[in-house]
Design a protein around this nucleic acid. Structure first.
Lengths: 127, 127
DNA sequence: CAGTATCCGAAAGGATACTG
DNA sequence: CAGTATCCTTTCGGATACTG
C-alpha cells in the first residue's frame, strides 16, 4: 500500500491504461449518455453530437470488449441493437464523476492560468 | 445541480477538456513523479521511462501553462531548472487517485473481459 | 437500421542534430 | 544541462459509399 518510487511508476502506468479506455475522444460521451437508460445505435448517433458512424461503431466495440457495456441485437426487420452500461461501466462513471467535479471547480482557474501564461510568454517556438 | 440530458452533455464535454489535460501519453507520468518532490529536467527525463526530450519539454510547457506545475530556472552554469507541482496540480493528482483505485481494482476484470471477447468474437473487420 | 470497407488529411509523437 | 528545430513515421479520425 505504501508508495515507493517504483510502484508509483507502475501505478501511473496502470492508471494510464485505464485512462486510455476512456481518455479518447468519444468514450466518455457515449458512456455518459448511457448512464440513465439503454439506447439504440441511432439514438446514440444523434445524442453524441458530431460523432461519425465509424467512430461510434469503433467506440462501442471497444467499450463492449472491455465489458463496460453490452450489445443486444434483436433479430427483427429492420434490425434493432440496444446498448446498455454494465455494472462495471456504471462504477467507472462514478469514479469519473470525481474528476468531473474537479473539472467544474477548477476550469475557470485553468483557463485564467492559460491566458496569463500566453500573455507573459511570447510564442517563441512550437506555437 | 440536477442532471438534465443537456447539462449531461455539457458536463461530459467539460470533463473531456480536463481529461485532455492529463489524458495524453505523458502528463500523468510527469505529474506523478513530481508528487513527492521537486525534480530537475534531467531527473524527470530519467524518471519517466521512454519519454523523448521533445515530448518532455512539450508536456512540461503544457502543464506549466495550465498552472499545474511551476518552472524555476536558476541562472547558473550549467543551467538548472526545477519543476514542482502547484497546489492545483496536487489537487488534480488527488482526484486522479480515485481513478487509479478503480483501475487497480478492475484491471484484472477488464483484461479478462477482453480475452473472452476476443475468443468469442472472430476478428472479421478492422482488427 | 445498423453497420462495413476504403480513402484521405490532420495530428501526435519518436529520432536526430544542433544551441545558449 | 536544458532545451530547440527539423524531419518523418504512425495513429486518429472524418467523409463517403456500400451492405445484410
Amino acid at each position: 500500500m505504501t508508495a515507493e518510487p517504483e510502484s508509483d511508476e507502475q501505478a501511473c502506468r496502470q492508471v494510464l491504461q485505464i485512462l486510455a479506455l476512456i481518455g479518447d475522444k468519444w468514450s466518455i460521451l457515449v458512456v455518459g449518455h448511457l448512464r440513465d437508460r439503454t439506447l439504440r445505435f441511432g439514438e446514440l448517433h444523434r445524442a453524441v453530437t458530431g460523432i461519425s458512424q465509424r467512430m461510434l461503431t469503433l467506440t462501442l466495440r471497444q467499450l463492449e470488449r472491455d465489458g463496460l457495456l453490452t450489445r443486444t441485437a434483436h433479430p427483427t426487420v429492420p434490425p434493432r441493437v440496444d446498448y446498455a452500461l454494465t455494472p462495471l461501466g456504471t462504477t467507472l462513471l462514478d469514479s469519473v464523476v470525481a474528476l468531473a467535479e474537479w473539472a467544474n471547480i477548477h476550469r475557470p482557474t485553468i483557463i485564467d492560468n492559460r491566458c496569463r501564461y500566453d500573455a507573459t510568454h511570447p510564442p517563441r517556438t512550437q506555437a
